[in-house]
Design a protein around this nucleic acid. Structure first.
Lengths: 193, 193
DNA sequence: TGCTTATTTGAATGATCATTCAACAACTAT
DNA sequence: ATAGTTGTTGAATGATCATTCAAATAAGCA
């Protein structure tokens, strides 16, 4: 036996960054070698494929976003306060000039969705889980009477997700200014109305 | 002299379809040869590059969407009726299972934006023109007192675009069902409120 | 200390890719 | 009609790519 020498999470986060920066297709194994510090053979030994590395990176991304999510929605504040903080965070990401402007899930969905049914399925599953989490948050807000029950949590969650997707796309064309912030604020109002 | 034998618009629409289907990077020259019926040399003679073909296809796409836009917003009906028809059309595209589910501009923006500054600039310009057209439509609605002037046309146009971007991304995960339609209806209400 | 199993290394491999090119064909102009 | 120009053809080119592999190395176990 022999234990792998590299730090799996570090490697996956490096791969994540590369994929978000150049996209999956344009990220060469040389790029990945440089980003992760792993030689091709090690990558193939650990992840089988470039595609396997993508899948692992997607999983790590999901996990990271998940802990971030549960960190923000910890229940220590009113649900709507937490939701506002969550949106503020997304706005900051959209306004940043680095790679975090885009979401790896939607970026990969756009790129390989039509070609790779399995990858699309996995990404769709991850996004569905995210949707469930948001639905739960909004249901909590309804239960706490912070928002009305006129529209149910599912409908509101769909709308919020649509808005966040749109914000991220919008950010690619309007990186500067406070357009994104204004949009996020109206989105918040419309979701919570 | 010698006149080119191919129909430029047909060729560009074929290239458009290929790029929307597989993405720019994964569309090989062989794919383009098959799709357009042009031999590599002819493509290079006419468009200089694969990238040049993308630029020409983007231009054709913009032109096609533009005539579609002015066809819908012809001023023969109330502005809001036309806007509803416009959104209905987008919903149908999102629900279709072919290539028209995605917008070539945003798809290419996602793929090459970070790598090719010039392409990003061109796409951003096209999207800005679209935004101006939408703003004009909403300004007309305000002038005709179909909607209030509480929020100006610019703000409303931004929000509508964000929503449309979001709808298209959403459609990649929920192609079936009427979720998209419901979302579009609420988007319409929130833009016009 | 040997034996087995797993990882690392980095060059080699073969496929695929965008692009070029030289021969050819069609059109214009003189 | 013929010279000059430009589009067409399709094979050739060289670069780049993901992947493989054999040798080297290290860890667990007896």
């Amino acid at each position: 036996m022999r234990i792998a020498e590299f730090d799996r999470e570090k490697v996956l986060r490096s791969a994540m960054t590369s994929f978000m920066d150049k996209g999956y297709g344009k990220t060469s194994m040389q790029d990945l070698k440089q980003a992760t510090g792993l030689h091709p053979g090690s990558i193939y030994c650990a992840f089988e494929n470039k595609r396997g590395l993508l899948l692992a990176a997607l999983g790590q991304y999901r996990e990271d976003r998940n802990t971030e999510f549960t960190g923000i929605f910890s229940g220590q504040r009113a649900v709507l306060i937490e939701l506002k903080a969550y949106l503020d965070n997304i706005v900051l990401e959209c306004q940043s000039c680095d790679v975090s402007r885009s979401c790896l899930l939607t970026k990969a969905l756009n790129e390989v969705a039509e070609q790779d049914e399995e990858v699309r399925g996995i990404i769709t599953l991850y996004l569905a889980h995210w949707q469930q989490a948001i639905t739960q948050v909004l249901q909590n807000a309804i239960d706490q009477k912070e928002i009305t029950s006129d529209r149910n949590a599912d409908v509101r969650a769909h709308y919020l997700m649509m808005g966040i997707y749109g914000l991220r796309t919008f950010a690619h064309t309007h990186p500067e200014g406070n357009t994104i912030k204004q949009l996020a604020e109206q989105l918040y109002e419309d979701v919570c109305r």
